[in-house]
Nucleic acid binder design. Sequence first.
DNA 1: GCATGCCGATTTGCATACAAGATGGATGCC
DNA 2: GGCATCCATCTTGTATGCAAATCGGCATGC
Lengths: 223, 223
Amino acid sequence: MQIGMRTDTNPTLADKLAAAIADGILNGRLPPGERLDEVGLAEQHGVSRTPVREALRQLAMSGLIDMRPRKGAIVSKATPEEIESLFVAMAEMEATCARLAAMSMTPIERRRLQARHESMVALAAAGETEAYSDANVAFHSAIYAGAHNAPLADYAMNLRRRVGPYRRAQFRVDGRLLRSNQEHDAVVRAIVSGDAAGAHAAMIHHVSLVEDAFEAFAAINAA
Amino acid sequence: MQIGMRTDTNPTLADKLAAAIADGILNGRLPPGERLDEVGLAEQHGVSRTPVREALRQLAMSGLIDMRPRKGAIVSKATPEEIESLFVAMAEMEATCARLAAMSMTPIERRRLQARHESMVALAAAGETEAYSDANVAFHSAIYAGAHNAPLADYAMNLRRRVGPYRRAQFRVDGRLLRSNQEHDAVVRAIVSGDAAGAHAAMIHHVSLVEDAFEAFAAINAA
DNA sequence: GCATGCCGATTTGCATACAAGATGGATGCC
DNA sequence: GGCATCCATCTTGTATGCAAATCGGCATGC
C-alpha cells in the first residue's frame, strides 16, 4: 500500500513519475491543495499523459493526492479534522508496531534498536535538528520492521508520509529534541524487555506528543 | 485506501472496472494466481486497454493484485507466511478499531451495536450461515465506523477484503457460528461499557480464533 | 446590480497506434 | 538426448488523437 511497493529494477515511467511527484509533495514543493495538471506534469517530465495518469491513480490510492472524476487531481488538502484523524491513525499504527516488535523482535534487532537509540542521544544533546530528524525516521522504521508484519509496517509508513506535509519542522518547537529522546527511551526499554503493553502505551504517548508539537508549531506560524 | 474510495456519481470507466475486477476476486471467480490479461479484460468489458490499465494500477495499490513491470498482473497469491501476516494485521486493525470505538462511540452507536449483536444471536442459533455471514460483515463494519477514524477504518476494511479469498466458508467449520457469537458478546460488552483495553483484547481474541478456523478449514480441504 | 444562460477554451477520459521487452518453441550444437 | 540460442509472437509500455465534460467569461434578461 506504499508508494514504492512495486520495488523492482526496471521501473516503468509511471512508477518513476509517482515517486517523483510523491517526493515533490513530501518536500513541500507541491503544497497541499496544489493542482496537478496532467499536461503540465507530462511536459515537465518530458513524457506523454498516459504514464502521468497512471501515476496519479497510484498516488490517489495512497492518499497523497485527491482525484475527482473529470475534475482533475490536487495534492491532498486535509481539513483540521482529517489531519487529526491522520495523527491518531499514525499513533495507533506506531503503537501497534511497537507492541508487535516487543513480542517478536529478535535479540539482534533489539540490540540494534537500542544502539540506534543511544546514538541519537548525542544528536539530541548537540541540538543537531537535521541529523536527528533523519535518525528519527530510521528509528521508527526499525520499529516498523521489527513488527515482522509487512502490511502493518507498510501502512504505518504510508501514514507517516501522509502526515509529513503537515508537520514539517516539528522539531523546531523548542525543547522538542530532548523530550523526544526521553520518550524514545521509554519505548526502547519496553520493546527490549518484551513488555508489549508498555511499548504500546509508550509509543502512543510519544506520537501524541509529536502531534501536540505540531499543533504548537501550527499555532506559532498562524500568529 | 479502499477500492470504492473515489465514491462519486459519475465514476470513470477505470473505477467501474476496478470495482468489477475486485468483485470477481472477492467472489472467487478470479482465484489467487489468476492471470489478468489486459486485452482479455478489455474485450470482456468492451473497452480499450487504457482504462483497464488504470484500474489494474488502482487494484495493485490496494494489494488485491500484484503487478510487475512488463510481466503483467495476477490476482495476489500470498504465501502461507503472507497470509499469516494478513490475518495478524487484520486482527490488530480490528482490535485497534474496537479500542477506539470503546473510547469514542456515541451512546446511539453503542445501542445500535448492541441491537445488531442481539439480532445475530437468533441467526447463530438457527444456523443460518449465509445471513449470519452478511450480518457479521455489517457488525464489524459498525465497529470500524465507531472508531471515528477514516484512515484506520478504511485500512481495516481493505485488509478484510484482502483476506476474503483465503477464508471463504470459514463458518462451515462446525460450531463456529455459536463460538463467534459468544466472542462478539465479549467485544460488545467491552465497547458498550467503554472498556478500551478490554475491547482490544476481546477483539484480538475473536479474530485470532477466526484465523484458527481458517486454518482448520484449510486443513480439512487439504485432506 | 445580480442572476442566468450560452459559448469558447481548456482539461480530462478513452481509443487507437506504435515501440519495446518478454515468452515460448523450433533449431542447431554438443 | 539434453541444452543453449535465436526468432516469431504475444504482451505490456508509451505516445498520440479524438470525444466529451468542465470552467470561465461575457452577454442577456430581470
